[in-house]
């Protein structure tokens, strides 16, 4: 019934996955939100999670860096591997995990501090910079990678909340990059942005895709088609189909995927 990702991936030659879900179930109290998900997520490529609202894609995303820990009724079973370590059972420290698996949220959420301090916060708490000059270097390169440097280089001490929505979101991406993560999770990063800002974020994701494993939840199928190499379709807590983005959108194997893509469900 459900395509196992290992099968669909047999034809694509891949190194071992950066992150992998093995039989992941998530419960909110009695509500079975995520059902038995197996998924491989590879470094240096963008994976889109699509599906109708409430299908569990954001919940799954938040399991990948244990952001669901703070919800008391949330329970996760199965394995989520970062390289070879199970992030839920092994001795991995949550704080460290979140430095390795960064996150960008739906609504831009810069700290109400200066642009500089927004970027510098992560490196500071993780002790990544020994000197002020190192920190300056991290701030500069992070902003450059996020394509924001030219716009803000003269006003690093102004508040991050004073930027426009699109700039704020790129600031949040720069902030996530600054701690040098291996994986970046993005939870509908463009849903609060106008089309121009969205285009900038998308091209930014494209540029970053070679350096980080990027997993992005999106409601826009066009966006998924534009930016991701792999796409997973979620429906009612199940992962219905996973495969190359082009295949999912041109010749889906499952009826439900086709119905969603053509707008009949969702």
């Amino acid at each position: 019934m459900i395509n196992t990702p290992t099968e669909t991936n047999l034809d694509t030659v891949q190194a071992s996955p950066k992150m992998a879900a093995r039989g992941v179930n998530v419960y909110y109290g009695d509500n079975h939100a995520i059902k038995d998900i197996d998924l491989n997520l590879y470094a240096d490529e963008v994976t889109s999670l699509i599906g109708p609202s409430g299908c569990g894609k954001s919940t799954f995303l938040r399991c990948l860096n244990r952001m669901n820990d703070t919800i008391p009724i949330c329970r996760v079973s199965g394995q989520i591997l970062l390289e070879d370590d199970d992030i839920y059972t092994s001795g991995i420290d949550v704080v460290q995990l979140r430095a390795r698996v960064g996150m960008v949220f739906q609504k831009p959420n810069p700290f109400p501090k200066s642009i500089y301090d927004n970027i510098a916060y992560g490196p500071r708490i993780h002790g990544l910079a020994a000197h002020r000059t190192d920190l300056d270097e991290i701030v500069t390169t992070s902003l450059e990678k996020a394509g924001l440097w030219q716009e803000v280089k003269d006003r690093l001490d102004t508040s991050g909340t004073a930027l426009s929505g699109g700039q704020q979101q790129r600031l949040c991406i720069a902030r996530a990059i600054a701690v040098n993560p291996e994986v970046i999770l993005m939870d509908e990063p463009c849903s609060a942005l106008d089309p121009i800002a969205t285009a900038k974020i998308e091209s930014l994701i494209d540029e970053l895709s070679g350096r980080y494993a990027i997993i992005i939840v999106t409601h826009s199928m066009q966006q998924a088609a534009r930016i991701s190499r792999k796409t997973a379709f979620f429906h009612l807590g199940e992962m219905v189909e996973y495969g190359d983005t082009t295949e999912i959108f041109t010749s889906p194997k499952e009826d439900r995927t086709r119905d969603y893509i053509t707008g009949r469900i969702g």
Binding site: N65, M67, T70, R98, G102, M103, F105, P110, Y121, R175
Partner: peptide
């Protein structure tokens, strides 16, 4: 969202 942002950075 501020708590999320900080938590998300570790």
């Amino acid at each position: 969202s501020i708590r999320d942002a900080a938590r998300g950075l570790g």
